[in-house]
């Protein structure tokens, strides 16, 4: 008799999407800075923002409430709607 076992996995994999090509230039684009909620992420991103603004770039700031959970949908949607590129940073 044919032996068989049952698959314990979800039998699915997340769809792989190709990364968007990085822009040739940041000029005129809006850059999102996402603080993931780790301590001192804000210190790090503050400095990144200063440097970007010095180059005359548009910067918008976003934050996850906590690093222990994935970003809430409204945060992800706001970044997608308002930004051309995003920097997701942390610093312990």
């Amino acid at each position: 008799m044919q032996r068989s076992i049952l698959d314990p996995t979800s039998e699915s994999n997340p769809a792989m999407r190709n990364r968007r090509s990085p822009p040739k230039s940041l000029a005129g684009l809006t850059i999102g800075l996402l603080d993931i909620g780790k301590r001192r992420s804000d210190n790090f991103l503050d400095q990144v923002e200063v440097r970007l603004v010095e180059h005359g770039l548009n910067v918008r700031r976003y934050a996850k409430p906590t690093n222990a959970r994935t970003a809430p949908e409204p945060v992800k949607q706001a970044i997608a709607a308002e930004c051309d590129v995003v920097v997701e940073g942390l610093a312990d």
Binding site: Q2, S4, I5, L6, D7, P8
Partner: peptide, 19 residues
């Protein structure tokens, strides 16, 4: 009525090793 995929094992395959 199992919905999970059934995976046939060759006759002499070690089922623990297969996992």
């Amino acid at each position: 009525n199992f919905v999970a995929r059934s995976i046939p094992l060759p006759e002499y395959d070690d089922d623990v090793e297969a996992c």
